[in-house]
Simulated scan of single mutants.
Amino acid sequence: MDLGEILRVLRKRWYIVVPMLLLAVGLGIGVFVKVPTTYSTYTMVSLLTSPAATKAASSQTGQGQDNPFLYLNGSLIATADFLGRRLQSTDTVLQLKSQGLTEEYEVALAENAQGPFLTITLKGTDKEHLLTSAAQLSTFAETTLNEIQQRNNVAEKDRIKLIQVIPPQTPKVETKAKLKPVIVIAGGTAALAFVLAFMVESISRSRRRKAALAETPAEPTVAGSASAMPDIEGTVVLQLPPKVAAVPPAPAPAPAPEKSSDVEKTQRIQVPPRPAATTTSQKESPQPARPKLSTTYQSNVDRGGQNANRVNGS
């Protein structure tokens, strides 16, 4: 089915397509209004070495400075990953919900970072509460880190610290989360409109075809031939004749006597007999008879002893 046929069907079944499309638009607008707007914000924290480790490192380097920001070593990255996994555990999520933090959040190492930085992302529908939850989660992360070290009998001077690098940012609208249900509802309704239009068209064609076949008188068909009946849609329906039972082959005729190659390659010509040598004119006017030789005679006169039986003229 080409594009022209699709457009003809949609134009023909407009009373199905148009209301369904209007319904799709209405449902899309309704979902967009009813679905609450989702906002997102984030904050970033970092781990710092303990005071004792900072003092030891400064004495080794000879700088004589107790600045923890100068010694962000690789061990702190492993500790930050450990803390992030702890904050996303099921027990921690339930504990935070009991404390009023109902937003969804995610804790992960900062991308393209060269230090122990954790990014905390939160999503919610209330902008003010979202900012409060972000600050609450940052404080909870610091408390959790201290509790873990305290349970493992880490001295105060050897404990890793946590500070906030980026405070909670102004919440932004999550457009994707807003439009996703709208696209699903409106797109599904529009697709249903096309399916219904083609389904109704298919049923209608099938009924018209059956009605045309019922009204057409049956014509006798000869075995071995096929009759064609034009369809109302411009196609041709071929009615094939019933299969004829197989007939056993007739015995092969006896081979004809073999003829010579001359007979097969030449043709006999019957030549009429030649006419008599004499023509009609000759028959009508016969030639005068040639004078016959004189007969012998006998002379009564004696001719000096010559032969008397000589032919005349000799």
Rank of each mutant, 00 (worst) to 15 (best):
S225W: 10
F69R: 09
E284H: 05
Q60G: 03
V165Y: 10
Q169E: 12
G4P: 07
L83A: 01
R207K: 07
F69W: 08
D158S: 06
R268D: 03
D302Y: 07
V17D: 01
Q60S: 14
K259D: 08
V195Y: 09
T221P: 00
T90Q: 09
P291M: 10
K243F: 07
A191P: 02
N112L: 10
A276V: 01
R303L: 14
P291R: 09
E142K: 13
R13H: 03
A78E: 12
P36Y: 00
A141M: 13
G30I: 05
S50A: 06
L238R: 03
P242Y: 08
S58D: 04
A80E: 07
K97T: 10
N309M: 06
I185A: 08
I16A: 03
I166E: 14
A186H: 06
E128H: 09
A254P: 15
V263L: 13
E111C: 05
A218D: 13
G234N: 02
A177H: 06
P291G: 07
L192A: 14
I232D: 15
P230C: 09
T279H: 05
S138T: 12
V173R: 03
T296G: 13
S133D: 12
E103F: 07
A108N: 15
P116D: 00
Y105W: 12
L3D: 02
V35K: 13
F194N: 09
L109G: 10
L10A: 01
A211M: 10
T79K: 13
R13G: 00
A197R: 02
V271N: 01
E264M: 11
P36M: 00
L162E: 02
L192N: 05
D81Q: 08
A256R: 05
I185R: 00
A113K: 01
I185T: 10
E106D: 14
Q267G: 01
S294F: 05
L22I: 14
L101R: 05
V237M: 12
D66M: 04
V311Q: 13
T79N: 10
L131E: 05
L213K: 04
Y39T: 03
K127L: 09
K34L: 15
L10V: 06
V93C: 07
A289I: 06
P171G: 02
T38V: 14
D158N: 08
T279E: 00
E111P: 15
A110Q: 11
D158W: 02
V107C: 12
V154K: 00
T54Q: 01
T216G: 00
P51C: 08
H129G: 15
I6A: 09
N309H: 08
G74L: 08
N307P: 12
E156T: 14
L83P: 06
T175G: 14
K34V: 15
S59Q: 15
S314D: 13
P249Y: 00
V236F: 06
L122V: 15
V195I: 15
V17H: 02
A256T: 14
Q164M: 07
I232T: 12
Q114R: 10
L3I: 14
Y39K: 07
R303T: 15
T216L: 12
V184D: 05
E106T: 13
L145N: 01
Q306H: 09
G100W: 01
L238Y: 08
A193R: 04
V33N: 08
T235Q: 11
N307E: 06
A245L: 11
L3K: 08
N152K: 03
T189P: 05
E258L: 13
L22E: 02
